[in-house]
Design a protein around this nucleic acid. Structure first.
Length: 414
DNA sequence: TCAGATCACCGC
DNA sequence: AAACGCGGTGATCTGA
């Protein structure tokens, strides 16, 4: 782990930080003008609906307007520390049925988030020397072995909404260069298939299936062709939820199912993917004995509090505390193995570019994606090298599939 | 003016 | 009592 991955990665990250990534400041300034105008319009609508002005950015003031003044019925969801009524996204979506204001607030929040966190912040961080933004990569920024990124964080640039995606358009290569983006397809589920050895999950990936649709069919017994988008979305939630140790409570809440339906779905999942259940139980037993878990390549994360005591007590932890640590331990094997694999790929890809005399250079890593800035004439070669290096970084029981695309900005490659 | 807590929300 | 893992950032609020 240290000699072959972390030690050589130091220089790779150092070079990526020094290289930075080019950001089109003028484009963001123009977006900023549009967004500010739009934000003011939405803000006026909100104030009209409330009957008076207030700071929409203040959950405290918003709470007062929604629940005291307009008399909307709270959902029951409370905030974490102060246990007051939440004004979070899910709550506002539900409240939208009662009054037009919550939907406007959701709109306001999207605009204000994009404007404040990226559109206004990024231009200030462009180095006037080279027109590029130089993030910091923290090699062990996450407890699982993942990188983190700060000042600015370039691992959480928007992509989900159309407006958000426009921010990615401002990330551009040098004139005459292109971006090549490569991302591991369903990386963590493939790792789970490998670690658990589950034959059904392995078959799905080996046959190149749409894993969420496949799971939906496998769990319900419905033929693959008859899986509806809604059913597929539920299966997708379960596929991810398994990696995170999701409860039936949350699945039910988020998918609009009853507790019984959610429980049945999860039960059916483990009946179909039995080795996944065994794998999770195996990790839990291992950490109870050794107080640590290991990833595919031997990275360790310590959980001393989870070592089983002689008398079977929980070592001073409440049940929720212990369960939270167990979820962390199980997830760390999967997420950490993903980190191992992409970090090794980065080390090898850097060496490959050097050995092949290519000018191409890695500029970003976003957990399962590498973004490379490439002279136009090298694109075809680099695409081949990137795919080859990433796909062969680990030999798993399933193929490690990589999607590779090139384009003129960071939005165009997705 | 500043630090820390809180809430909310962006990504994988 | 809590309920899905890993991060970072901005706005607000509070108190020094």
């Amino acid at each position: 782990m240290f000699d072959e991955i972390e030690a050589p990665l130091v220089r790779v990250l150092e070079e990526m930080e020094a290289t930075g990534i080019r950001v089109d400041g003028a484009m963001l300034e123009a977006m900023g003008r549009d967004l500010r105008a739009e934000l003011e319009r939405v803000e006026r609508e909100i104030h009209d609906l409330a009957g008076h002005p207030f700071n929409v950015n203040s959950p405290q003031q918003l709470r007062k307007v929604l629940f005291d003044e307009l008399g909307l019925v709270p959902s029951g969801r409370r905030t974490q520390k102060t246990r007051v009524h939440s004004t979070g996204q899910e709550v506002l979506e539900a409240l939208a049925a009662q009054h037009p204001l919550p939907a406007r607030v959701l709109e306001y929040r999207e605009l204000s988030k994009l404007l404040g966190t990226w559109v206004e912040a990024l231009p200030k961080l462009i180095d006037p020397e080279d027109g590029r933004v130089h993030t910091r990569f923290h090699q062990l920024g996450a407890a699982t072995g993942r990188l983190s990124s700060s000042d600015p964080n370039l691992q959480n640039i928007p992509i989900r909404t159309p407006l958000g995606r426009r921010i990615r358009e401002a990330f551009v290569p040098e004139p005459g260069w292109l971006f090549v983006s490569a991302d591991y397809s369903q990386m963590e589920l493939r790792i789970l298939a490998h670690l658990s050895g589950d034959p059904e999950l392995i078959r799905a990936f080996s046959e190149g299936r749409d894993i969420h649709a496949y799971t939906a069919a496998a769990v319900t017994g419905i033929p693959l062709e008859e899986v509806t988008p809604e059913l597929r979305a539920r299966a997708k939630a379960v596929n991810f939820g398994i990696i995170y140790g999701m409860s039936e409570f949350r699945l039910a809440r988020e998918q609009g199912m009853s507790r019984d339906e959610a429980r049945a779905f999860i039960t059916a999942y483990f009946e179909r993917y039995g080795k996944v259940r065994e794998y999770i139980d195996g990790v839990i037993a291992h950490v109870a004995r050794h107080g640590e878990v290991r990833t595919l390549f031997g990275r360790r994360r310590s959980f001393p509090e989870l070592i089983a005591t002689e008398d079977g007590t929980r070592g001073g932890l409440s049940r929720p505390q212990r369960e939270a640590l167990v979820r962390q331990a199980v997830n760390a094997t999967v997420q950490g193995s993903g980190a191992d694999i992409i970090k090794l790929a980065m080390v090898r890809l850097h060496a490959r570019f050097r050995d092949q005399g290519l000018a191409a250079r890695m500029v970003l890593q976003v957990h399962d994606e590498l973004l490379v800035e490439v002279p136009a004439g090298e694109v075809a070669q680099v695409e081949r090298h990137v795919r080859e290096v990433m796909e062969s970084a680990a030999r798993l029981a399933v193929p490690l599939a990589v999607d590779v695309r090139s384009g003129p900005n960071w939005s165009a490659v997705h």
